[in-house]
Design a protein around this nucleic acid. Structure first.
Length: 506
RNA sequence: GCCCCUAUCGUCUAGCGGUCUAGGACAUCGCCCUCUCACGGCGGUAACACCAGUUCAAAUCUGGUUGGGGGUACCA
């Protein structure tokens, strides 16, 4: 199999080792899952290894709840991992437990001369830049690069503590990006950067590559927002390799953003960015995964509904597009609808259960806890409802009139006003016909014939005019599951009761 | 300011120098099917940001312009 990119993008390692390493700071986000999905798909396609690790270095923002939600999200989506949290020694996979490791590496970097102590404060750097006529945003000027021991001692006597900075070589930094192709940062593009704060806290620029190196990660697929940190990390990798800590510099692939409305990255404020909100709306994993994979990648020129197996068979990160993609809820819903229709009816019902249970329509949200009668009824209803919902939650109002026979029917807003004397006559006639039907004759096709003869043929009404009042009477809605099947399922007594009830409202 | 990324219908994309009067999907509009809705079928509207250059030939290669995004941190 050859794709356009095989010839001009880097070849992937024989045994790819990828990782997904979010920070536990909030509700699982669609952009985050998009990144996780692409890492997963690449790992599964290549037979590689996916590592799941937590970048929890910010104790002010990190929460246990967030961690639990991220795990729940991955499990719900079916994104599994081979190494990492919950699989082996968790001390390897939580950065919050690894401060000594980073400090140890920092010490080695310092002793080898790859990093140096920097005593300059932000104010001093800004002043020097100003004095030299450089723009304020110029950044660090390398002032502490070659401080003598005496100078350092003098700073220490002032009570200063040094940050540790990486000595950035004066040369172009290039890499061949898996999604963007060759990228070069010219020499001097960025200054010596801090890897350890004066108080000893290691920074992302250090912790991320160090863990990747220790876990022998050879492919890094991450968001475009991390692109500017890559040349810095490449510098660091060169040093880590010299110290024997890193085996190689990994291949990098910078994935496109998932955008929201306007030209903004999908933010936590956008409701459609919240994975669990999408689940509550009634997305199924297959649909959401399918849609998300399409944001920056395509399955083929003329097919965009496919299974996870098909995705894995075809996915290649080198085919991913570099430009950001907008999250389009309408298309996401449409793709979801296709996947709902492909579900086995029993599977469909089982997945509807939580939504039905939440509204008090069924007594349990677990299939096994339902009575045989309940199961049988749901299974009869499923094929009627399944092809006409796009989200699982939409099944609730459609199933309700078929399941809840005791409750008072609620009529849809504005559905009663247009009713006329003609509709009243239709209901009268329907009532008369249906009352005479024997129990054993109460079948969808019999009722269809009966009502067609009476209402359409004898009353000379168009089919819509004839059946819609009946539909409204038994469902409370203008849109419902197929009428005659519904009549059969609801049963004669309740149908008679509901039609009489609506008749009296006209 | 400087650096980096990016640019095909409203949206997601196919396109890899000739097969492009640019294909598919969602959305939208019309028609058919039809007990409603959905499904399904048929058809319509709708895009190569701009300017140069290379070439017999450019959506495709090169340069520039413009637009969008990101960075320029002791954030990630």
């Amino acid at each position: 199999m050859s794709t356009k990119n095989d010839k001009d993008k880097p070849s992937i390692p024989e045994h790819p080792r990828l990782r997904f390493c979010p920070s536990p700071t909030g509700i699982p986000h669609v952009g985050m899952i998009h990144t996780a999905l692409y890492n997963w798909a690449e790992a599964r396609h290549t037979g590689g290894t996916l590592i799941f690790r937590m970048e929890d270095t910010d104790d002010r923002r990190d929460t246990k709840e967030s961690l639990d939600m991220i795990i729940e999200a991955l499990e719900w989506m079916g994104i599994d991992w081979d190494e990492g949290i919950g699989k082996g020694n968790d001390d390897l996979y939580f950065q919050s437990r690894r401060k000594e490791v980073y400090q140890g590496v920092a010490k080695q970097l310092f002793e080898a001369g790859f990093a140096y102590e920097s005593f300059s404060t932000a104010e001093e750097i800004a002043e020097r830049n100003k004095a030299a006529g450089r723009p304020e945003t110029f950044g660090y000027d390398g002032f502490d690069r070659n401080l003598t021991e005496e100078q350092k001692e003098a700073f220490r006597k002032e009570g200063r503590k040094p940050a540790l900075r990486i000595r950035v070589p004066d040369e172009d930094i290039s890499w061949d990006d898996l999604v963007r192709g060759p990228i070069t940062y010219k020499a001097g593009s960025f200054p010596d950067f801090v890897i350890v704060r004066p108080n000893g806290d290691p920074l992302y620029t250090l912790t991320n590559p160090v863990d990747d190196a220790i876990l022998d990660v050879n492919m890094v697929l991450r968001g475009e927002d991390l692109l500017p940190s890559t040349p810095r990390q490449i510098v660091l990798y060169e040093y880590l390799k010299k110290l024997g800590i890193a085996k190689q510099t990994p291949l990098f692939g910078h994935l496109p953003y998932v955008m929201g409305e306007g030209n903004k990255k999908l933010s936590k404020r956008d409701p459609q960015s919240n994975l669990f909100l999408l689940r509550d709306m009634g997305f199924i994993r297959e649909g959401l995964l399918n849609y998300l994979s399409l944001l920056g990648w395509s399955y083929s020129a003329d097919q965009d509904v496919f299974s996870m197996e098909e995705l894995v068979a075809k996915f290649d990160v080198r085919d991913v597009k570099a430009n950001p993609a907008r999250f389009d809820l309408k298309k996401a819903i449409s793709i979801n609808a296709s996947h709902i229709r492909m579900l086995d009816p029993e599977d469909f019902v089982k997945r509807c259960l939580p939504y039905l249970f939440k509204e008090g329509i069924v007594p349990a949200d677990k299939w096994d806890e339902l009575s045989a009668d309940d199961k049988a009824l749901l299974l009869r209803i499923a094929p009627l409802v399944q092809p006409r919902v796009r989200l699982l939650s939409e099944a609730v109002p459609m199933m309700l009139p078929l399941i809840d026979k005791a409750g008072e029917l609620e009529f849809e807003e504005g559905s009663l006003e247009p009713l006329t004397e003609g509709d009243k006559a239709v209901l009268d006639r329907a009532l008369k016909e249906l009352e005479n039907v024997q129990d054993e004759e109460w079948k969808a096709d019999t009722l269809h014939t009966l009502l067609t003869d009476a209402l359409v043929n004898e009353m000379s009404l168009p089919a819509k005019k004839a059946f819609n009042p009946v539909r409204l009477a038994i469902s409370g809605k203008k849109v419902s599951a197929p009428l005659f099947e519904s009549l059969e399922i609801i049963g004669k007594p309740v149908v008679i009761e509901r039609i009489s009830s609506l008749r009296s409202k006209i």
